[in-house]
Design a protein around this nucleic acid. Structure first.
Lengths: 176, 176
DNA sequence: TAGGCTATATTTAGAGA
DNA sequence: GTCTCTAAATATAGCCT
């Protein structure tokens, strides 16, 4: 009277878990993926709702893959972080253009298109940068994972970023 | 038969909102605070659950206040990001020590103590760094807001961080 | 290995203190 | 500006495909 009779719940639903390291390799990976996505979604909502500028770097423990989220773009905000300049509100198109170039080497996606993008993820290698809503909110994006072998590119990226930083006084003095 | 009779709901409960810029200054601030906290909490959970290393920079639009979250510490991960080094898994205590020093100039809190800390937030100016669980998970922390006037300190911090980066080859070659 | 599917665990909007 | 309280909106753990 229990095997497969009456109203058997299809799933147990979400189970309560303790916030402690997940031992099982597989579940940990699943959780990592799901929650990383959730985190980025929350971040994008915070961006849109409050106009905040956010950067998130997430590095997986095992795979050493780096995921980033940024609005208006990770490098723009990090750059601002590094230089200590808070030139306020909206980033100029000049800066954004620069950033787009910088980020062009990664597979990038717009926040709002996450759901759609996920469905054609197989073709992701082909895409370089998808920019959709760049007038109002400024555009959100995040990188696809860059495994350890891609670190060289990352390093180049950061070198470029640092150069940007150093030249900011003369070249990127926007509204500060 | 409606004013204040029978079962009147105490609150409307959570209302559904559209993800678009909040016009009302006050609600936007409230939302910013609440969701920023929620974001950091999610991040800390992701850290603990999957052992990921995370950095989050959040800059408010109006006040230009900078909030950061980091595990094992923002500077450590950013540094790794900058140098492009992914020396894997657990950070050495040496690095952590360094980071603690670096972060010491900010009001820092441990993730797990957020709830408790909030209650004595008034005394926050007095505290410098609260480190609680530094053996297993490595320790999480986030900064209290640093307004525009504190940018100088931030700049100093980043300079120190960059120095760390430059000297890494000779000084901080841990396990890479 | 990643994508659906519920049923719950959590988060949080709105209002008050 | 912050903290609490509630009820409803979301996020997501464990399964299954």
């Amino acid at each position: 009277m229990n095997v497969n009779t009456s109203v058997v719940k299809k799933t147990q639903g979400r189970k309560k878990i303790a916030i402690k390291p997940i031992d099982n390799q597989n579940s940990r990976h699943v959780t990592f993926s799901k929650r990383r996505l959730g985190l980025f979604k929350k971040a994008s909502e915070l961006c849109i709702l409050t106009g905040a500028e956010i950067v998130i770097l997430v590095q997986s423990l095992k795979r050493q893959r780096l995921f980033t989220f940024g609005h208006p773009s990770a490098d723009a905000v990090i750059d601002r972080y590094i230089t200590g300049i808070s030139s306020s509100s909206l980033s100029s198109s000049t800066t954004d253009e620069f950033n787009l170039q910088q980020n062009n080497q990664y597979y990038s996606h717009m926040c709002k298109d996450l759901e759609a993008e996920k469905k054609k993820k197989e073709n992701i290698e082909e895409e370089k940068l998808v920019n959709i809503d760049d007038n109002n909110n400024g555009g959100y994006w995040w990188n696809e994972p860059i495994d350890t072998k891609g670190i060289d590119e990352l390093e180049e990226f950061m070198v470029a970023l640092e150069n940007l930083k150093k030249n900011k006084d003369s070249e990127l003095r926007i509204n500060f």
